[in-house]
Structure formats: structure tokens, C-alpha cells
Computed example of a mutant assay.
Amino acid sequence: MTTAPTPQSGVPARPPVSAIALATVATTAGLFLLAAAAAATDMALFALPFAASAAIVAVAPALPFAQPRSIVVGHLAGGTLALGVTAVAGPSVWTAALAAGLATAPMLLLRAPHPPATATAALVGLTGPAPEFLLNPVLPASAVVIAGGVLLGRLLPGRRYPAYWR
């Protein structure tokens, strides 16, 4: 008989204050870049999923969810699926819910899980943007998040990002 591992009950150690300050400043700077891109493209809502992506990269850079492949492929897969659902059903809150739920499948099939990408799918289902939104703002916003993670990984001693590229 095999027993399940016992879950750990302790809270993780608090990082040094200097690491917290640097991560906060770097994350905020990256989010300001995302805000500028969103304002320039009149697609401010699309900055929201990428704010969550940036937070995952800043707080848990080693997780599979935080890796560049998961960020780019996850947002593109979720957005593409949502475009198809929205083309059939039209934009609505119900389409948003369906698209967000269904977006899990292509992310997992493509081995690129990224929970914030479900928000991208929901926004597509809600707003019904043109397919070009995949090229702008999704790809540039993904690049900003990844670049911010790389920069943060270079600035913080003992921190490596990404854990892998592919």
C-alpha cells in the first residue's frame, strides 16, 4: 500500500527586504511598460492578464507557469481558442466564461500551462477583438513580461530566470 506524501504545514521563509524591494520596483516598472503599451493600443483591458503574468514571474520564477514558453504559448493558445468561440457565439459574458474554461485544454496539450492566459481568453470572449490582437498586444506584452523576468533574474543574486526557454 502506498501512502500519499504528507503536506508541509510551514509558511515559506520571508525573502530579504532588499529582494522584496527590488522585486517590487522591477514588477512595478514592468507594469508601467504594459500600461503604456495598453494605452497606446486602446486595449487597456488586455494589460490585466499580463499583470498577473508579471506577478507570477516576479514571485515564483521557477514554476512552469512562469516560463517564457508557458507565457507566450499559453496566451496565444487561449486567445486563439477564444477567437474561435467568439466567432461562433459572439461576445458576451457567457462566451467569456466558455472561452476561459476551454482555454485550459490547448495550454495543457501544448505543455504550456499559464493560468493568466485564461483571463486573456475571457477578455476575448467578452470584447470580441480582431484577430490581430494576437500580434498586438499579446506578443509585445508577453515579451515585456519575459524581459522583466530576465532583468529581475540578473539583478537579484541567486535568482535565475528563466528556468528554461523551451
Rank of each mutant, 00 (worst) to 15 (best):
T2M: 01
T2I: 03
T2P: 00
P5I: 01
T6Y: 00
T6C: 00
P7A: 04
G10Q: 15
P15C: 11
S18I: 08
A19E: 07
A21D: 09
A21Y: 15
A21E: 10
A21V: 13
A21G: 10
T24F: 07
T24P: 02
V25E: 12
A26L: 09
T27D: 05
G30Y: 09
L31Y: 13
F32P: 06
A36G: 07
T41M: 10
D42L: 12
M43P: 08
A44P: 11
A51G: 12
A52T: 05
A52I: 04
V57G: 01
V59E: 13
P61L: 03
L63G: 07
Q67F: 03
P68N: 05
R69K: 06
I71H: 02
I71N: 01
I71F: 02
V72R: 07
G74Y: 02
H75M: 06
A77S: 05
G79K: 02
L83G: 04
G84T: 08
G84E: 07
V85R: 01
T86H: 07
T86K: 07
V88R: 04
G90C: 15
G90M: 13
P91A: 14
P91C: 14
A97C: 12
A99W: 06
A99F: 09
L102G: 05
P106F: 08
L108W: 08
L110R: 07
L110V: 10
R111T: 09
A112T: 01
H114T: 00
P116A: 02
A119C: 04
A121Y: 02
A122P: 03
G125M: 00
P131T: 12
F133G: 04
P137H: 06
P137V: 11
L139S: 05
A141G: 13
I146Y: 03
V150C: 09
L151T: 15
R154C: 14
L155V: 11
R160N: 12
Y161F: 06
P162V: 03
P162E: 04
Y164L: 11
W165I: 15
R166F: 02
